[in-house]
Design a protein around this nucleic acid. Structure first.
Lengths: 142, 142
DNA sequence: GGTCAATGTTTGACGCCTCAATAATATATA
DNA sequence: TATATATTATTGAGGCGTCAAACATTGACC
């Protein structure tokens, strides 16, 4: 009647559970959701970019990107305008205020990450990253 | 103007991204969401249990549990009744049909996990699991 | 120029999650 | 017994994600 789970299955569940817990906790500690931080972060790196390139760099669905950016724009953290050379594109740029706020929460973000990876050393961290990237590659075209 | 992300930050984002991709892909391959599979799986293990103990074992919010079980009940995969000895509790049990279906998708689930962890060996798997558990412990009371 | 396919954005529908508030029941205690 | 407290389940509101459909614009080709 019973059946024991393979380690792989266990890992799959653990992975999902952990990630579900991570999001809300992160947000409570930094005032920004992981996705918004990542978006703003990309915009700091590249100063300005189209929504579609932004989408590709963070791997979130187009629709979600649109909604995030609309909200970030409403909050004054981001500005958007049409690309004059190609009116289909929307070019996004971080504002002064956006820059200020993301810098402001750097500290909290780092502290969160530090506690999250507490007592996990660099070698382990590297191997963790490596495995996650391989997994991502493995499931790419499911 | 720019700032380079720490490895920890990168990992944090990678983790979230990967997990976001995992859910939908899993569901496309098995007909069940990760959460529903996990719930049914628990019910196979324990034959019958109260919602609150079920909740504790899968680490999902009470509210989500209620909604999942209502739907699973509507689908005929699960039966629910009040505990006669404590009318606050709802006792949940998997049905024949539920058992049939979860057994039926075992194959797909295993095949998914296999491809997902392709070329990641047992030692690595063990260490991955270990790290995830430590992280979970680390963020427990954020 | 007119048509057609590709590209980029937006919207709607819907799933899953969390948190907070409510309701029902059980338990402890004055 | 009456009242306060704790436990369990439910509901409502709202965030974030996906997919699919609609729309505008561009570019290629006749």
């Amino acid at each position: 009647m019973k059946f024991t789970p393979s380690e792989q299955e266990e890992l799959l569940f653990l992975f999902k559970t952990l990630s579900n817990q991570l999001g809300p906790k992160f947000e409570r500690n930094t005032q920004f959701s992981l996705s918004r931080i990542e978006l703003l972060y990309q915009l700091v790196q590249s100063d300005e970019m189209s929504q579609s390139t932004l989408q590709k760099s963070v791997n979130i669905d187009h629709a979600a990107i649109t909604r995030h950016l609309k909200q970030l724009e409403a909050d004054g953290l981001v500005s958007r305008r049409r690309n004059p050379h190609d009116n289909r594109e929307t070019i996004v740029q971080i504002t002064e205020e956006g820059y200020r706020q993301i810098m402001n929460c750097q500290k909290d973000k780092l502290s969160f990450a530090n506690r999250m990876f507490h007592e996990i050393n660099d070698v382990e961290l590297r191997s963790l990253m490596d495995m996650l990237k391989r997994i991502q590659e493995n499931i790419k075209d499911f």
